[in-house]
Write a protein that binds this DNA or RNA. Structure first.
Ligand code: ZN
Ligand code: ZN
Ligand code: ZN
Ligand code: ZN
Lengths: 327, 327
DNA sequence: CAATCAGGTCACAAGGTCAG
DNA sequence: CTGACCTTGTGACCTGATTG
């Protein structure tokens, strides 16, 4: 059943509390009304200011009619599916108020994380496309140069930009901030570039940047990527959508256990943030992957795997990486 | 509910009649439009001539965009926190006209009282800082000298300056004016210096002027301050903001019952002023302390307590005080 | 019956309008 | 630029039809 942690149905369109099964999906009164009005008036919402990428959440659902309608159709609302059978509610007597304050705060968090992800991704794509024209370099030395002077710094910039967009991150001490950014480099490579790395005949190719790494001779990085090939397949098979990936990235960066030497205030702060992020991710996964209810464990497993890989390769990678390049 | 005495919602930003719940707070059409335009145009109001302290009232709200925007944000207006559709429970059927004339007059009164308070406070702080360097005097006689020749006269100057700034006060007979100023001395000590008096080991210390008074031997004043320690705590716990304190001070000074022997014209005039001040204070308390609706009774109680203390100590204090120092 | 949902209702808010 | 007024929705409740 598509229920949130409190046991209530949530709207597949916006994540608000669902009032029942309307036009073929569980949704809230708002989305029900919106869909009904749109269909009846035969509305065509043609324009979206943000390239049809708006997140549709309780607090943002009225921001873009186009994306709201798109989302309605995506999750399967249809005027014809009205005749489909009714749905019995399992739970009926307990009619508690859902904590809208919590919901609002969660919306805010998701929106903030997602917009930071979009911003940082845009910047990253620019540096990707800048390098697209460069010839493929196979020689070990040139590859190392590309890796340590182009590729990894661009990842670090991504992490730094993404993190700094989160108010909670800016509240941490400078030391804590640096630790979190540096520690997340490997995990970002794995999460961000899973679709871009390809393995062919023991050579790992980055499709968009046009560099290749021989698994046998490219040092730490070659070993790491060789290890990860299976991981990439698994991650991609989950089929996370951008919002979910952005939350996963945030969870990976904002890790309280990396601040064990820092102020306990920072640790507590991160701990709380982790909790909120996990709740938000859970809620999003429920909304977006109703059919496969067991998706959260897979995502948690992904987190564990990349943490493990970081533990194994971090020190070795850092010793190669010029520390001064960290901004 | 944030309603004024007539049962209407008031604008949390400027105190005008609120037209509804906009961008997360009850506010008027003007503030709604102002906030909307500011956010949409991404305006940054950088400069305020009056050190960012402007009172934002119906009649003054267009005087300083910076402070109006600041106030909007202070009371929690947010472009993201829009909540559409019908409200869950609210019912306000009684809809009458609010008397804008009354509102205008009230604004004028508040602005006048507040600016007089700021002016008089500034003068008082100067005399405070002049004395800060002086050594602490513990001997009873020297304390008495400080009290009666420095401290109380500065309070009298405060009251006189504050009162003379009010047009209504200048219309009173000279006798009435003198009575009001003299009668308010004790109340001013209590209202103005509540944050400055500290009790330690039966010694009362004035933090900013640097004199101390032994509760056991400093005559009337010592007894008075010893009595007031609890009162100070209570007053401070209410957390009045400067505008509110200025209105409370005005209410304390402009008391019609002190003019019982004077011209009935003066009495009527003060009576009306008291009414207006009380309405204005009530309105301000509603605007500024929405969460604690029971704040007005506490403030009224404060007024009663200081009147009571004046009754008890006034004659005794006056017999010590050299009458000639009254200007 | 009670439970459920399509469709209606209408108080209410966002954002536009335009004289002042 | 301001704000009273207006237009265009929005969504918490209602209503009545349908189902077991
Ligand atoms: Zn919804
Ligand atoms: Zn959109
Ligand atoms: Zn206002
Ligand atoms: Zn100002």
């Amino acid at each position: 059943m598509l229920t949130d942690s409190l046991g209530y149905h949530i709207c597949r369109v916006c994540g608000d509390k669902a009032s029942g099964f309307h036009y073929g999906v569980f949704c809230c009164e708002g989305c029900k009304g919106f869909f009904f009005r749109s269909v009846r008036a035969n509305k065509r919402y043609q324009y979206c200011k943000r390239s049809e990428q708006c997140l549709v959440l309780r607090s943002s659902r009225n921001g873009c009619k186009f994306c709201r309608m798109q989302r309605c159709l995506e999750v399967g609302m249809s005027y014809e599916s009205v005749k489909m059978g009714r749905c019995r509610k399992t739970d009926l007597s307990t009619r508690k108020q859902m904590l809208t304050q919590v919901a609002d705060a969660q919306d805010e968090l998701i929106l903030s994380v997602y917009s930071a992800y979009m911003k940082a991704t845009e910047q990253l794509n620019q540096s990707n496309s800048n390098d697209t024209h460069s010839v493929k370099v196979i020689e070990a030395e040139a590859v190392e140069h590309t890796l340590y002077n182009d590729y990894l710094p661009s990842i670090v910039r991504f992490v730094a930009l993404f993190a700094r967009e989160q108010p909670i991150f800016r509240k941490l001490s400078t030391d804590s901030q640096k630790i979190l950014v540096k520690s997340a480099i490997i995990e970002m490579v794995l999460l961000l570039d899973a679709p871009n790395f390809d393995l062919q005949d023991n050579v790992i190719i980055h499709k968009r940047r046009g560099f290749s790494v021989k698994t046998s001779c490219a040092g730490v990085f070659g070993k790491l990527l060789a290890d990860c090939h299976m991981f990439f397949q698994r991650l991609l098979s989950i089929g996370l959508i951008p919002v979910e990936l952005s939350l996963l990235i945030a969870l990976s960066i904002f890790s309280s256990d990396r601040l064990s030497g820092q102020a306990s205030q920072d640790q507590l702060c991160m701990n709380e943030t982790e909790d909120c992020l996990l709740m938000a991710l859970k809620c999003q996964l429920l909304m977006n992957h109703g059919r496969h209810i067991n998706i959260l464990p897979s995502v948690i497993e992904v987190l564990c795997v990349i943490r493990g890989l970081t533990t194994v390769y971090y020190d070795e990678l850092m010793s190669c990486h010029v520390a001064g390049q960290l901004s």
